[in-house]
Design a binder for these strands. Structure first.
Lengths: 205, 205, 205, 205
DNA sequence: TTGTAACCGAGACGGTACGTCAAGTCTTCGG
DNA sequence: CCGAAGACTTGACGTACCGTCTCGGTTACAA
C-alpha cells in the first residue's frame, strides 16, 4: 500500500543487521563530526556495509538520519504522557522545562538540529520530519490546551493550533538560532506570557 | 576598532570591482541553483574572478552570501521607518503583513533561508547573522512596543525583548519549517493574540 | 613476490580499458605539448578517465609516462636481435646508425627525453628507468662485444661494461645535451675510435 | 652591442643589491628544495625582493640559476690552469679525478644538475649553458690533447673534439643518470681506455 | 631645486593545475 | 539476488604558483 515501497528492491530480503548498523553508525557519526561533515562513505565504513546498501534503501543521508532518529525516539516511547493536574500553568511549565532540558542534551541536539536544518532546505524531507517528529510532539500540547479550554481556563473561541505555535515558536526559534539560552527562567516567563494571551476575555458583557 | 580586519591582507588594495562582482554573482547563483549547489568555483567563474580572490577575503561561501545579502538590504535602506499612528494593533499588523510578503518573495527568500540554515549550523556565522541582519530587524519592533508601552497600551512591567520573541518566533518558525503559509490572515491573528498577552493587567486601577 | 603491489588497491579489479587509455593519452600529449606542459588533468580528460584513477595507480606523471613508453617499446619487441656477422665493426656501425635514427624520430624522442630528464632529478624514477629501459638496451651491446672478445677481436682482459659506456656515453651525451647532430658520420667515427681502444694489445704474442 | 640589452629596462639603474640577493637566494634554495620545487615566489621572498624585479631581468627561473651559477664559478676563477707535465696520462687522470670530486660536491651538484636537466628541455637555455659553462670546460681538455698530439703521444690525424667527447661523454653520462659512482678507479680506467683509442697507429709502414 | 621617470618592495589580481575528498554508479564475488 | 567491497567518473574542494598589474616609496637625472 505504501507508495514508497515500489521503488525499493525486495524488502523481504533486506538485511536487518545492516539496517541497524547503518542507523546506529549514522547517529554516532553525526554526534562526532556534525551533519555537514557526515558522509555516506563514513557511515558505510563504520557500519561495515557497502555504500550501495545505503543507496539502495535511502535517498539521502538526511533520510538515513531521520530513520535513525525516529527509531531512537520511538525506543524511548516518548508518548509517555502529558501531566494534567488541573493547574495548566504548572503543567505547561513542567513540560516546557523538560523539553528545554532535552534540547540542551547534546546527544539529542546534534541529530535533531541536523534534521531541522536539512528539512529547512529540503521540502521532501521537511514533510517527513513534520509528520514523524514534529506533529506527534505538538499534538500532546494541543490536547492539554483543549483540556484547559474545557476547564474554562482558556478562551473557548481560540484556535488551539495557533496557541501552540505561540508557545513553541519562540522556544524553537531561540533554540535553532541560538539567540538565547533555554533556561527554565525563560520557559516559565514564556508560559506565563502565553497564558495571558489565552485567558478567557474578562469583560464578558 | 575592527578585530576582523587583522587577518585580512591589505584592505586598501582590495579591488572594488571584484568585490562587487563576487557579491552579485553569489546572489544570482543562489537564486538559480539553491544554496547547497552553490559553489565557490561557480561564483568565481560567474564573477570573472580567481578563486583565490574569494578565499582571500571570505572564510566560507556562507560568509560571502551574508555580505552579499547585507549589501542588498542596506541598499534598500530598510530602516525606512516603522509606522507609529498611535494604533499599535494596526501598526503591527501592517508591518507584519509587509514582512510576510517580503519572506514570500523568492528573490529574498532563497539567500535569507540559506543564511538562516547555515547559521543554525555554524556558530561563527550565526553571530554575524544575528548582529547584522536579525538584531536591526528586531530593534524596530522593540521600539514600537516601547512607544506603545509609554502610551499605556502595553503592560509597563513587561520585558519587551521577550514580547518581540513572542511575536516573531511563531512567524519565523512557520516560515523556516514551512509548517504553514504566511498569509495576512495568519499574521493578523498572531498580532491580535500577542497583544492580548501584552495588554496592561486589568483590575489594577 | 612483488613488493610494489602492496601499496596498490586490488589489482585484479583494475580497469584495463582505463589503463590503456591513460597510457595512450600520455604518449599523445607528451608529443603535442612537451613534458613540462603535460598535466595529469589533461591526460585524464583525453583518456576519458577520472583524475583519481591516475593517482590511484601511479605516483607521478613521470611514472605514467615510463609505463606508457615501456609498453610501446615492448610492443615493438625491440629485442629483435643484434646482428652478428663476425665483422664487429660493421655490426656496431649498423646498430648505432639505427639507434641514431631512432633517437632522431620525434615520436620516440619526446617521451624518452622527458623520461631521461625526469630520471636525472628523481632517483626513484631513475631506478626504474634504468632497469626497464636502459639496461635491456645496453645488454645487447655487451653481448655482442663478448662475442667479439671470444672471436679474438677484442682485448680479452677488458671490462665490457666500461667498453659499452665508452661507446654509448658520448652518443647519449650528444643527444641529451644537443651538443651536436646524431649523424651516421658521427656514429661511424665513434665506433672506429672505440674499437681502437678495445683492440687486443699488440706485440704480446 | 649586446642584442639582449634592448628588451631590458635601463640597466644602469639596476639595483646591484637586489641582483646579488636574488642570485644568492636561488643558489641556496636550489640546494634546499631542488630545482623542480624551486619557485620564483620563494626566491623573491628569500631575497627580500618583489617578484617583478625578477621577471624584469630574467626570462625564467632557469636563467636566474644559470646567472647565479656562472657567477659562483667565475668567482672561483676556474681557468686555474690545466697541468702539462708532459705525461698526458697522468695529467688527464689528475684533472678527471678533480672533476669527479667536484661533481660529487653537493653544493656544486644540485645547481649544475638542475641546469643540465633544464637545458635538456629548453633549447634556448641549452645554448647559453653550453656557451657559458660547458665549452670553457671542454676547451682546456682540447688544448691539453693538442699539446699531447704535438708531442707525438696522440694520433696526429685525430679529431680532438671527438676525442674529448669520448673522454667526457661516459663521465657525464654516468653522473647525470647516476648509473654508477664517480670513483677515481673509474676515471683512471676511463683515461687509460681512451688513450688506447687516441694512440698513434703502431703499424707505421 | 624641483619635477618626473625609472626601479624597487609589496602583494592583489585572473588563472591553471595540483592532489584530495566524497558523491553516486557500476562490477565482481561470496553466501 | 542481496550484500561487502571497492574501482570507476565526476566535480568541487582549498592550496600553490604562475606571470601581470597596480600601489606608494625612493633615487637620480633633467629642466
Amino acid at each position: 500500500m505504501s507508495s514508497t515501497t515500489a521503488k525499493h528492491p525486495d524488502v523481504s530480503r533486506r538485511s536487518e543487521r545492516s539496517r541497524k548498523a547503518i542507523l546506529q553508525a549514522s547517529m554516532e557519526l553525526v554526534g562526532e563530526v556534525g551533519y555537514p561533515k557526515l558522509t555516506i562513505e563514513a557511515i558505510a565504513a563504520r557500519a561495515g556495509v557497502g555504500k550501495q546498501t545505503i543507496y539502495r534503501w535511502w535517498p539521502s543521508k538526511a533520510a538515513v538520519l531521520l530513520d535513525a532518529f525516529t527509531e531512537v525516539v520511538h525506543d524511548q516511547d516518548y508518548d509517555s504522557g502529558f501531566p494534567d493536574t488541573g493547574d495548566i500553568e504548572a503543567d505547561l511549565k513542567t513540560v516546557l522545562r523538560a523539553t528545554a532540558d532535552e534540547f540542551s542534551d547534546t546527544a539529542f541536539e546534534a541529530p535533531y538540529r541536523a534534521l531541522a536544518v536539512a528539512a529547512a532546505t529540503d521540502p521532501k524531507l521537511a514533510d517527513q520530519f513534520v509528520t514523524r517528529l514534529r506533529e506527534p510532539g505538538l499534538k500532546v500540547y494541543t490536547e492539554r490546551l483543549r483540556s484547559g479550554q474545557e476547564a474554562g481556563q482558556i478562551d473557548p473561541e481560540l484556535d488551539l493550533d495557533l496557541a501552540v505555535e505561540l508557545l513553541l515558536g519562540p522556544f524553537q526559534q531561540r533554540w535553532l538560532s541560538r539567540s538565547g539560552p533555554l533556561t527554565h527562567e525563560f520557559t516559565d516567563r514564556l508560559v506565563e506570557l502565553v497564558l495571558r494571551a489565552l485567558a478567557p476575555r474578562d469583560g464578558k458583557p
